[in-house]
Computed example of a mutant assay.
Amino acid sequence: MKPSRARAPHPGQRKALDRSVKSTLFCPRCDFLGRFSMGRPSPDTKQILIDTALALIWMSSYGSVSVDDICKAAGVKKGSFYHFFPSKVDLAVAAMEHSYHEVKPLYDTIFSPDTPPLKRFERMMEVVIEKQTETLEKYGRVCGCSDTSLGCEMAGLEERIRVKFEELASRKKRYYENALRDMVAEGTLPPDTDVKAKAHEIFAYLLGQMTLARIQNDLNLLKRDLRPGLLGLLGLQDKAGSAA
């Protein structure tokens, strides 16, 4: 069965998207002025399209952002878009992969084996709140996780987006698994802990909290609930309470 096309945004969404396009044109992440030359598209054009798509889709949704919107915000002709990407889906998948590689160095630092395993999770929670605070200040709303928002919207319609989401999720959960194994080794967690299942629980909880904060546009939900909930999943809520 052929997937149905996403419906066009209603007038209110259209106005909000137009504001998003205008803000993206002046966004430090997407400041493209003067980076183009006549003739064959510059290699920079591909990265500009990826950055623009990430910003626009994160601020609104995949379905409400058209190829025309992306090209307009990026200052790129549609022919240049299709020079690099056969479709919007191809651009979305490339943007998801790029987004992961942008945060991978941060994951490597947070989950360094030299850091005590519980501290890795604590630092991860701090960084989540820091990053969501940055996007709130930049875009005027809580944006949550870009991959999760895209996956929730399109995984049932575009198999490549679903597969890419699963692939990136597996990479991130490996960091959690390694930290959990170290917690078992040091005796913080029981020796029979299923680290793969526990890593999946933590991953699902984290995405759920960010999605709820996005839906309610309330960063205080993360500040209030993220730490105690995650420590609860680790069975450490009593220790955290006594430490406080």
Rank of each mutant, 00 (worst) to 15 (best):
K78C: 02
S66D: 05
K88V: 02
D69I: 13
V93T: 09
C71V: 07
K77D: 12
V76G: 02
K72E: 11
F81S: 03
A73T: 09
D90R: 09
V76W: 00
K88Q: 13
A94S: 15
C71T: 11
F85K: 00
I70S: 10
K77G: 07
G75Y: 05
P86I: 03
V65S: 15
A74V: 14
S64Y: 06
K77R: 14
F81T: 01
S80G: 04
S64R: 13
A94P: 09
K88D: 06
S87T: 14
S64N: 08
A73H: 00
F85Q: 01
I70F: 08
V89G: 07
K77S: 09
V89S: 15
D68E: 13
A73G: 12
A73V: 11
Y82P: 11
A74Q: 05
S66M: 11
G79T: 12
F81R: 00
K77V: 10
K88M: 12
S66N: 12
F81M: 13
D68S: 15
A73N: 10
F81C: 12
V93E: 04
H83P: 04
S64F: 06
S66Q: 10
K72H: 11
V67Y: 02
S80T: 10
L91H: 03
G75T: 07
V89M: 14
F81I: 08
F81D: 01
V89A: 15
V89T: 14
D69M: 13
D68A: 15
G79Q: 09
A92W: 01
S87K: 07
V67Q: 02
A74W: 03
V67P: 06
